[in-house]
């Protein structure tokens, strides 16, 4: 799964069990530099052992003194530490993210740095929303609303809010009430999942109004339409496939087209789409499971068993796009961009 990108850091943080306290706030700049030159895990591990008061004091002191490139490194240092302790210390995650925001504000206040600060802030929000979206949906939604307040015409943020709502619908969780009221909608009396999916489609449509060729938003809209039994699903998934720029989206588009055909009992068509999915992800589990089921439904028992055996024999990579879609995943593109910016010399 894509969440492993930050999990590796989490292991690094938790593996260190010897408390190493800072000698004083002066050491903060040293840790930031360590992160900036590429010793990320060492720096994160070191900062993780500092007492909270020392971190707070250091951030306050150094926010005015660090160079702009150091500020970006510092805010990413706190952000990566937050990601690493998300499961084990959620309260501390919030504390670290607040420090990151203080440093962002400091960057934004610098002369000639406003544009850069905005670019960093947007990616930072995208990353933080996606990070919380894997575990803590309320926090993710809070950051999404905050981000949309600052970037009201950013399609990615609308897409992310839609994806959070889609996740809530899957797990039958209520919508965050303030989000509903902020858009002036009156909750429908219908089932919770139906309402939440409708809210998700509204966010996807908003994203697509701003960027009509946003394949990932079109893909999500198409799948929600499949779940809703909306006959626009086929067109949405075809458009997602046409606009897709990477194989993960193509993989999911074919998988979802297969799912749509299967729901319509068009098993031959479903098998064709699942085969295309398998071609794009031959080491992923889901197309084998889907194909095996469809072959059984077609009466091809031997073929179904053969696919199950093939799946059992696979050297699999723990990175099936369906899992990320279904459970939420870290925005790897935003994280990569932010890391590059933090290590820029």
């Amino acid at each position: 799964m894509r969440r492993t990108i930050v999990a590796a850091t989490a292991i690094a943080v938790l593996a260190g069990n010897q408390p190493v306290l800072a000698q004083g706030p002066g050491e903060y700049e040293h840790v930031v530099e360590e992160y900036r030159i590429g010793e990320a895990n060492t720096a994160i591990r070191r900062l993780a052992r500092w007492p909270e008061s020392m971190v707070t004091e250091s951030v306050r002191h150094w926010a005015k003194l660090l160079r702009p490139e150091q500020l970006v490194a510092a805010l990413m240092l706190h952000t990566e530490l937050a990601a690493a302790i998300l499961d084990s210390l959620p309260h501390q995650t919030n504390v670290q993210l607040r420090h990151a925001q203080e440093l962002l504000d400091a960057l934004s206040a610098r002369r000639d740095q406003h544009e850069r600060a905005d670019a960093v802030r947007l990616r930072w929000y995208q990353f933080v929303i996606s990070m919380y979206g894997t575990t803590w949906l309320d926090d993710a939604d809070r950051y999404a609303r905050e981000a949309l307040g600052r970037f009201p015409r950013n399609p990615t943020l609308y897409f992310q809010r839609g994806a959070l709502l889609e996740l809530r619908a899957k797990f039958n969780l209520p919508e965050p009430p303030r989000a509903t009221l902020a858009r002036g909608r009156i909750p429908d009396p219908g089932p919770r999942m139906t309402r939440t999916l409708e809210s998700a489609t509204a966010e996807y449509r908003r994203a697509l109004e701003l960027d009509p060729h946003m394949a990932i938003a079109r893909l999500h809209l198409g799948w929600v339409h499949v779940l809703q039994g909306d006959n626009r699903a086929g067109d949405d998934l075809a458009a997602a496939l046409a606009d897709a720029r990477d194989d993960r989206i193509r993989y999911l588009a074919h998988l979802f087209r297969g799912g749509l055909a299967e729901r319509q009992h068009q098993f031959d068509e479903a098998a064709k789409e699942y085969e295309l999915t398998r071609e794009l992800g031959p080491s992923h589990q889901t197309p084998y499971v889907a194909l095996s089921r469809v072959e059984l439904a077609r009466g091809h028992t031997e073929r179904a068993r053969e696919l199950a055996r093939e799946l059992a024999a696979l050297e699999r990579v723990d990175d099936d796009p369906w899992w990320d879609y279904h459970l939420g995943a870290v925005d790897e593109d935003a994280l990569t961009w932010l890391r590059a910016e933090a290590h820029r010399r």
Binding site: V289, S292, L296, R305, A308
Partner: peptide, 10 residues
């Protein structure tokens, strides 16, 4: 659900 499907197919 996917595991049950696979086990039946096997």
């Amino acid at each position: 659900r996917d595991a049950v499907q696979l086990a039946i197919a096997l």
